[in-house]
């Protein structure tokens, strides 16, 4: 028995020593990287104060009842239970957000890359003009409000006026108040706004690919622009593709203001309600910050999951 105990304690000692060695090794590498930490420090400090802290506090609020005036009151999972079991509007919102994410996410992403790539094919003097043309929807704050006029519900709205002029329809369509059309209009507008940050990063990324690689490609017998795209351009663009993907995910999951501004709030039968409009309802109208934070946390988890999935897919590009 005693022998076994000794063996055990010897093992424990060994393990302790190994841990110690590892720790001192880590400390050594940390000390060696002190210049790197110094470079990182200003960002890390500000990021912790202004981003991590608020996110952590919000996630904490999601387990409380908090009406902004009184201190938060811990209620466990009650907010989450109410959301899933007792909130019909939340279910509609989840469906709509899911629809928006599945359509505008991938389509917006592919459009961003495709247009960036096509613009890159143009002669140099035309490129910056076309970048402006396609980025125009994101350059002003409320550019999309023109769609309110375009899809106006009377016979003077452009869409109605043309459809009736051409004899396709005989009466006006309530684009922004009829549940059958509302989400369709929102999807079109979101797609129209999807050439944003991701698009610009693609434009800049395409510009940094070295000309030598393309010239080597001509020599190696790359026959057309499609082969060039797949074998040279895309593999070189991997970091920007990941950036664009994350942008597409955040944009497509957080559609809210567009739906509110076009279809009104609350929209007819909540048919254009999204997770973010639901969140704004509780956060800024009903002052139930705990509930709003629970909605934000669920949305956060959904985005993290889809980012994981997209990241796995992107690893296969250009192989």
């Amino acid at each position: 028995m005693g022998g076994e105990k000794d063996k055990m304690s010897a093992k424990v000692d060994q393990w302790k020593e190994r841990k110690k060695a590892q720790a001192s090794y880590t400390l050594k590498t940390i000390w060696k990287s002190r210049v790197q930490y110094a470079f990182l420090f200003p960002y890390a400090l500000l990021f912790t104060v202004f981003f991590i802290t608020p996110v952590v506090i919000s996630i904490f609020y999601s387990f409380t009842y908090y009406n902004v005036l009184n201190p938060p009151e811990f209620i466990g999972l009650q907010n989450y239970i109410n959301l899933i079991l007792a909130d019909d509007v939340f279910l509609i919102s989840v469906q709509n957000t899911f629809l928006l994410a599945v359509i505008t996410g991938p389509v917006g992403y592919i459009m961003s890359f495709l247009f960036a790539w096509l613009i890159h094919e143009l002669p140099r003097f035309l490129r910056s003009i076309f970048v402006l043309v396609f980025f125009a929807p994101s350059i002003g704050v409320n550019m999309f409000m023109l769609f309110g006029t375009l899809f106006s519900s009377d016979s003077y709205g452009w869409a109605n006026a043309y459809l009736m002029d051409w004899g396709i329809k005989s009466q006006v369509t309530y684009w922004l108040t009829d549940p059958a059309y509302m989400m369709g209009v929102v999807i079109i507008v979101v797609l129209w706004m999807s050439l944003g940050n991701g698009f610009l990063s693609f434009i800049a990324g395409l510009q940094t690919i070295s000309q030598d690689q393309y010239e080597a490609g001509y020599v190696d017998g790359i026959k057309n622009r499609w082969q060039e795209l797949w074998f040279i351009t895309l593999p070189n663009m991997k970091p920007m593709l990941l950036f664009g993907a994350v942008m597409a995910i955040t944009q497509s999951f957080s559609v809210g203001e567009v739906a509110n501004a076009l279809c009104g709030f609350p929209s007819t039968d909540y048919a254009a309600s999204t997770v973010v409009t639901h969140l704004m309802d509780y956060g800024s109208l009903r002052f139930d910050m705990g509930y709003a934070s629970a909605i934000a946390t669920i949305l956060f988890l959904a985005m993290i999951l889809s980012k994981k999935a997209v990241g796995a897919m992107l690893n296969k590009v250009g192989t």
Binding site: V49, I52, S58, L279, M289, A296, M303, K307
Partner: peptide
């Protein structure tokens, strides 16, 4: 950092105000 990008900014308003 990349994960923080995906948190809805609307609910961060009050914690930010506290900071």
């Amino acid at each position: 950092v990349v994960t923080a990008l995906m948190f809805t900014p609307q609910v961060m308003a009050i914690p930010n105000y506290l900071v």
